[in-house]
């Protein structure tokens, strides 16, 4: 496992593990209710503290890769100590995302319906009636991990991932649901699509869906889908 690790305390408890000559991982012990939001904002804070690093936040670890090696852990530590989560806006964005579950968009819905012994209507009702939170962003551009999905409709990843998915495809896997905003390859079963473009980063790289964003879905018809899509 990691070559060495050091435990430190800031206003939150952090463990820094040296993974490789240019890579560190941080694990935090935050009892915070909004863990993924905390991770993502801390990642952004770390990124802004140094010009020569890359930072990626997942749901349970923050990873840092440095252009300059050996890495200066002191710089990371001092950036960690200057992070104030209370300064991050505690008002979470709320977003209602329209989804069309019609057959033409829902490549895997019938198969899932057989697997779970639930009607497609039951599955899409469960999917569209719950409230979600963005847990992580990444994988391919514009993909977001939303949770938690009702366990009644939890299914595993496809055994063979698709080489490409349609733009806006809505997929589920285990306790997560996600949106392939820009299409691309994908291994999650697809049950619908949204006509809304959720991924248009400007040159500063700011995006609509960030961890902490609260998301609800709204079932729409094919006619509404087409109408909304034409407005993009």
């Amino acid at each position: 496992m990691a070559a060495k690790s050091l435990a430190m305390s800031f206003n939150f408890n952090t463990k820094i593990s040296v993974i490789a000559e240019d890579m560190l991982e941080l694990r935090l012990h935050v009892s915070h209710i909004n863990k993924s939001k905390f991770y993502w904002h801390l990642a952004e804070h770390l990124l802004n503290s140094q010009n020569d690093i890359e930072v990626i936040a997942s749901e349970e670890v923050i990873s840092i890769r440095s252009k300059v090696i050996p890495m200066d852990i002191n710089k990371i530590e001092s950036a960690l100590s200057s992070f104030e989560f209370s300064l991050i806006s505690q008002i979470d964005h709320k977003l209602e995302i329209p989804i069309c579950y019609e057959d033409v968009f829902a490549s895997d819905l019938k198969e899932i319906s057989k697997q779970l012994n639930l009607s497609t209507q039951e599955i899409t009702d469960i999917h569209s009636s719950a409230s979600y939170e963005v847990k992580a962003i990444g994988f391919t551009p514009g993909f977001s991990y939303l949770g938690d999905l009702d366990e009644k409709i939890a299914v595993p990843r496809l055994s063979k991932p698709r080489v490409s998915t349609a733009v806006g495809s809505v997929a589920i896997a285990n306790d997560r649901t996600g949106i392939y905003c820009l299409g691309g390859p994908g291994g999650w079963p697809i049950i619908g699509a949204t006509p809304i473009n959720l991924f248009n980063p400007d040159d500063t790289g700011s995006v609509t869906l960030i961890p902490g964003t609260k998301v609800t879905f709204k079932k729409i018809s094919m006619e509404e889908f087409i109408m909304m899509q034409s407005r993009n």
């Binding site: 690093i53 990444g138 980063p201």
Partner: peptide, 8 residues
């Protein structure tokens, strides 16, 4: 560079 945190 420096866009991996938003998935790019």
């Amino acid at each position: 560079m420096r866009s991996k945190h938003i998935g790019i």
